[in-house]
């Protein structure tokens, strides 16, 4: 999948090209055209993760996702597509949900990041985690940390009055309806298809019967 491509992802040009019998001179992959290899650039990053100050020495190329998983060993945040399409890497940075795979760790120097580990613990689940368990809002569980971070943040967005694509009236405070939750969760893909239970769990936390 390329970019947040949506349905374009079903197109596989190489296969399609073969299928059409097309014959073309293929350029070399970009990486092979380039013989110069530059040394990594290392930089210091200081940020607060789940309330704890952290300082890391990182290659500038390190995404926030890789910093969390590989350097801080917070493996609750998952790498799915690594291209911002699946939402498995969703974390809350400076109060907002983002795809941690599409941002550089160095860009969060001085910032605050909350991961699933910072929301709750096995002994003391966050209300959203407890609701996901109660409503069976997952099957394999791989997308779940991202789903939960996204769900927690989206209720804040609704509270703050951020409208959505399905909000009928842009000037009215958004409501917690099933349609609103589904639209607002569309950046989190669940291949097990636990969507209806996920929406029920979020609705319960929001205190609605959506």
């Amino acid at each position: 999948m390329v970019g947040w491509l949506g349905t374009w992802s079903i197109i596989r040009p190489m296969e399609a090209c073969k299928a059409l019998g097309a014959k073309r001179a293929l350029p070399l992959p970009v990486s092979a055209q380039d013989s110069g290899i530059s040394a990594p650039v290392i930089t210091k990053v200081t940020f607060e993760v789940n309330g704890k100050p952290q300082t890391l020495e990182l290659d500038t190329r390190t995404t926030l996702l890789d910093a969390l998983r590989d350097h801080l060993h917070l493996t609750g945040t998952k790498k799915g597509c690594d291209h911002g399409q699946c939402g498995a890497c969703t974390v809350i940075a400076d109060g907002r949900r983002i795809n941690s795979c599409l941002t550089l760790a160095v860009m969060h120097d001085g910032g605050k990041v909350t991961t699933i580990e910072g929301l709750g613990t096995p002994d003391k689940l966050h209300p959203m985690q407890a609701a996901f368990v109660r409503h069976d809002g997952y099957q394999c569980g791989y997308c779940t940390p991202g789903q939960i971070c996204s769900a927690v943040a989206l209720l804040q967005e609704i509270k703050a009055g951020v409208p959505s694509h399905v909000s009928a009236d842009l000037l009215a405070p958004p409501a917690v309806t099933n349609a609103e939750l589904r639209e607002r969760m569309s950046g989190n893909i669940c291949r097990c298809g636990a969507y209806s239970n996920i929406a029920e769990a979020i609705a319960e936390v929001a205190g609605s019967s959506a």
């Binding site: 947040w4 907002r96 795809n99 996204s150 943040a153 842009l170 969760m185």
Partner: peptide, 22 residues
């Protein structure tokens, strides 16, 4: 939202909540 609702509508039709935040 009040004076340029077309712009709000177009923005909300694009991407996901996470991406629009960035």
């Amino acid at each position: 939202r009040r004076e340029y609702p077309l712009l709000s509508r177009a923005l909300l039709a694009g991407a996901s909540g996470q991406l629009r935040n960035k």
